[in-house]
Design a protein around this nucleic acid. Sequence first.
DNA 1: ACAATACCAGACAGATCTGTCTACTGTCGG
DNA 2: CCGACAGTAGACAGATCTGTCTGGTATTGT
Lengths: 192, 192
Amino acid sequence: MPSQTTSQPSARERLLAAADELFYEEGVHTVGIDRIIERAGVAKATLYSTYGSKDELVRSYLTRRHEARVARLTGAVGQYTDPRDRLLAIFESLEKTVARHGFRGCAFVNASAEASAGGAVAEVSARSRSWTRDLFTTEAAAAGVAAPAALAEQLVMLYDGAMVAAQMDQNPKAAGAARVMAALLIDTAPRA
Amino acid sequence: MPSQTTSQPSARERLLAAADELFYEEGVHTVGIDRIIERAGVAKATLYSTYGSKDELVRSYLTRRHEARVARLTGAVGQYTDPRDRLLAIFESLEKTVARHGFRGCAFVNASAEASAGGAVAEVSARSRSWTRDLFTTEAAAAGVAAPAALAEQLVMLYDGAMVAAQMDQNPKAAGAARVMAALLIDTAPRA
DNA sequence: ACAATACCAGACAGATCTGTCTACTGTCGG
DNA sequence: CCGACAGTAGACAGATCTGTCTGGTATTGT
């Protein structure tokens, strides 16, 4: 049980918050352990007794990013009942995400760019992408389209493309353009 | 003038070829100078007398990638005369690209994920993306659409999204799905 | 009161990375 | 024939990175 007399969060949480900011802003490889413990205000030994290795901290960072995405998207989708609205809500949420100050693209794509093929990064990324695709597939099926998996594949591509455009071209309006394309695809998709 | 008595390419070209392979496969930050000179069969001093720094080698690597893209896409587009075919030819070319063994996503997106904001990577990436967007815009205008820049923005997003999907989901068929979506967008875009 | 726990500060080892420097080798033009 | 040049091999400096270890401090449960 961590001490909670002070109002500060536990060392574990401070470490994860510092890692989240620094890894996302500057890249997993660029940011060293020393930068993280300095920002977290935590001793190096505490990091290693808590997370064991940098690789495990990276895994926790991506897992946290995934959980944040799940919360964001399920919250957005849950605001509506109409299946078409629920699908478009994902893109509305994306519009807010890419407009946030400090947006720097998809954490999973970025981390995968610097990680080796079979490691923790690939594993968590695959899980997160699979969850996202399933969300699209479920909602597409609820919308009554004939091939929900195919529509989901298209919408995921728009989702990814919008994040790349927002990051690389510093153009947050890309997400709105993706939403418009998504509406077109949803409305022209053959129904069962 | 480099010596050409042997059939080997110059040290400069061997270095660039080695850097291209290794940087793309494993990431700019992960691959050290020693790995590159070892694969190129070149002395370390030669690398530094030729390129000056690792950063300049990275810039040359990305410039080479950009030139390859220009050659690939202009070649693909040039096979057709009908504006619609010329636009779709870009996606046909993409289908071949992502199906190639060792495809690992967009070199510019990947390099940007590990580079700082204002450096050589950002500069070359911006130039390449601008060229690509202009290609789409020019062809969209030739196709007679009312808002060629807007259609180009959409098509670039599909282009990026397909590369992300092909890389992250190991799904080369994503590029074909992007081509189908592109055709829909081109055909439904308002004409002038 | 006291042992366990959680944490901090920082030295340290060992590896690795970029970039420089020295010394040597082969080739070619004049 | 010889000086200029391009390149090789590898030692080296200096920085940085991960991970370990020592020693000290404060809080907590019993």
